[in-house]
Design a protein around this nucleic acid. Structure first.
Length: 570
DNA sequence: GCCGTTTTCGGCCCGACTGTTTTCAGTCG
């Protein structure tokens, strides 16, 4: 899939430079195309080989030619020319809060500002307030923006912000003027990372709610404070926006602020064609501005001629078309998940005993837990050799007999060695209920070697699933170079599953990869990879990834009973 | 640059807040 991300990066950059040049519509076309390429579940080289690039929605002849150029030469002439046409420092300046294309260009043209350092210098020398239309406040805000930019830590993991959201909702529910409050935005869509939080509240006294909001604990700075819209930055640098709307508009506002932006643009375009106007206050008829629907999100979608869809699908990757044709997939739900198929214990690098992990899983309402400790090659994690693994197997069988109404499955997270062989002898693996095979070393192998390595492991008849199949760590480490298409084809053929690792910085397979797996007929397994008791709660995040990948209960092995899971191996 | 159950040309989503202005442009989501 790396060809896809390379193409998307070029299209994004072209789109962004065109934004600076205020070529709005051409820019939008490139950004839209980039987004489509990002969410493709097929290798773009294959689509190109069939000559079908311009049948991808949002991609026409011109962008198709750019894509072919990137695939053939690794670069785009148009992009290189665009880069050169831009005054130095302008893209960097636009990364600052409150600086858009107009301001960045003016700072460069009129003050010779060539980047963030030189902007800071100009502001400290009070050269900015001297410009026409600028004042002291603007200068100070730019300095604050520079400071924030330098301390910024990028996007936040979904797993990090979920507890923060709970805190905010609890705080807001303490305001007596509030009717309803929910989180919207990318957090409601359960994206793997979020850039900021969008909180939505309804009230008849919006000022009270807005005031209550900015008095939240942990607020470091108030960026904007109006009656219906405010923005704060928390001490951990997470930005949080609130919108307060009348109670009767809650459904419309929830739809509007959940996004994604691309989903909403498409939806409103469809609305316009059907004679409607859609905004955060409701769905209106264009002619007389009469209200069609505002209170209920589901009825807004219905009025636009489509089925309501779960927030996780709203990325404009085909869900609107599916909703109009009433063929949205049934998505897997957390309460359909019967077990966790990847957890560690204190036999290797976990902190809790087998019993403690099992008890916690049972208390969460699960029916089974697969204990999958590391194997001997992973010395740093005190990986088990054959002898210890058989010892652990006996212990698991003993504990399993003692528990009623809950099954502990004897498993392993077995290392895939550099040549694709497994770290544990086949006759021992055969004794187990569940085998997760994972790559933990040699990440730098080239694509061919890595692909053959994993495909070879898939051909071992004892392997149940491949653990964290791409090895990525979100915001920290890229996936290893591997031809996932070939891996998935092999998995489909050998009836081996692929894991969605639920650990917050892994979520691997990703949403797009999960959808790709489904399209190839590969079932996925959810594994928390928990090393502590509380990490078993990560299961919900794996379900979110599965839902964002359009997976239904039939696509996820964890909806099966323990007996059904163990029978997969026979 | 893309797209087409009003269109192959002429559209392309919509509104709040800020800072500075005397009525609005720029930015953001």
């Amino acid at each position: 899939m790396s060809a896809n991300s390379g193409v998307a990066a070029v299209l994004y950059e072209i789109g962004e430079i065109l934004t600076v040049k205020e070529d709005t519509f051409r820019s939008r076309a490139y950004l839209m195309a980039a987004q489509r390429v990002t969410s493709l579940t097929e290798d773009i080289r294959d689509i190109r080989a069939r000559g079908e690039l311009d049948s991808i929605p949002g991609i026409g002849k011109s962008i198709a030619a750019t894509i072919e150029e990137v695939l053939d030469t690794g670069e785009s002439k148009a992009l290189m020319e665009l880069r050169e046409s831009l005054p130095p420092g302008v893209p960097e300046l636009m990364a600052l809060e409150g600086v858009g294309p107009k301001l960045a260009m003016r700072l460069n043209r009129e003050l010779g500002v060539t980047g963030i350092d030189s902007l800071e210098k100009a502001a400290k020398e009070h050269r900015i307030r001297a410009l026409k239309g600028f004042g002291e406040k603007k200068e100070q805000n730019l300095l604050k923006a520079v400071e924030e930019y330098r301390g910024r830590s990028g996007r936040f993991l979904l797993g990090e912000v979920l507890p923060i959201i709970q805190g905010i909702l609890t705080h807001m529910r303490g305001c007596d003027a509030i009717r309803r409050v929910e989180v919207a935005g990318s957090a409601r869509r359960r994206k793997e990372t979020v850039g900021d939080l969008d909180v939505l509240a309804s009230s008849l006294e919006p000022e009270k709610v807005s005031d209550h909001f900015i008095r939240m604990p942990n607020v470091a700075r108030v960026l904007a404070h109006g009656p219906t819209k405010s923005t704060v930055v928390l001490e951990n640098r997470l930005q949080v926006d609130i919108r307060v709307i009348p109670p009767g508009s809650f459904g419309a506002a929830l739809q509007y602020f959940t996004g994604s932006k691309e989903h909403n643009v498409k939806l409103r375009t469809i609305g316009v064609k059907a004679g409607f106007k859609l905004n955060e206050y409701g769905l209106f008829r264009r002619g007389d501005d009469s209200l069609v629907e505002a209170e209920d999100e589901e009825r807004i979608y219905e009025a636009l001629g489509m089925d309501w869809m779960p927030p996780e699908l709203r990325e404009n990757t085909g869900e609107i078309e599916a909703a109009m044709e009433h063929r949205l997939p049934e998505l897997v739900e957390l309460d359909q998940i019967r077990g966790d198929l990847h957890a560690h214990t204190d036999w290797s690098e976990g902190t809790a005993s087998i019993e403690e992990m099992a008890e916690k899983a049972r208390s969460m309402g699960l029916e089974y837990l697969a204990v999958c400790d590391h194997t001997k090659t992973l010395g740093i994690a005190r990986g088990l050799d054959e002898e210890r693994l058989l010892e652990q197997l006996k212990e698991i069988r003993r504990l399993d007999d003692e528990m009623s109404g809950f099954r502990i499955l004897a498993g392993t997270e077995c290392d895939i060695l550099r040549d694709g062989k497994l770290d544990i002898a086949d006759d021992v693996l055969q004794e187990l209920d569940w085998v997760v095979a994972s790559v933990h070393s040699g990440f730098k192998q080239d694509e061919e070697a890595m692909t053959r390595r994993i495909v070879e492991a898939i051909h071992n008849e004892n392997v149940s699933t491949v653990g964290h199949p791409t090895g990525r760590l979100i915001e920290k480490r890229s996936p290893y170079t591997v031809d996932l298409d070939r891996v998935l084809d092999a998995a489909a053929e050998q009836r081996v599953c692929m894991e969605i690792n639920c650990f917050p910085d892994r979520l691997d397979l990703s949403d797009v990869n999960s959808r790709q797996a489904k399209e190839k007929g590969v079932r996925v397994t959810l594994g928390t990879d928990a090393h502590t008791v509380s990490e078993l709660e990560f299961l919900g995040m794996g379900v979110s990834v599965a839902r964002r990948g359009w997976l239904g209960p039939g696509d996820v092995v964890n909806t099966l009973t323990a007996d059904e899971v163990t029978r997969l191996r026979s």
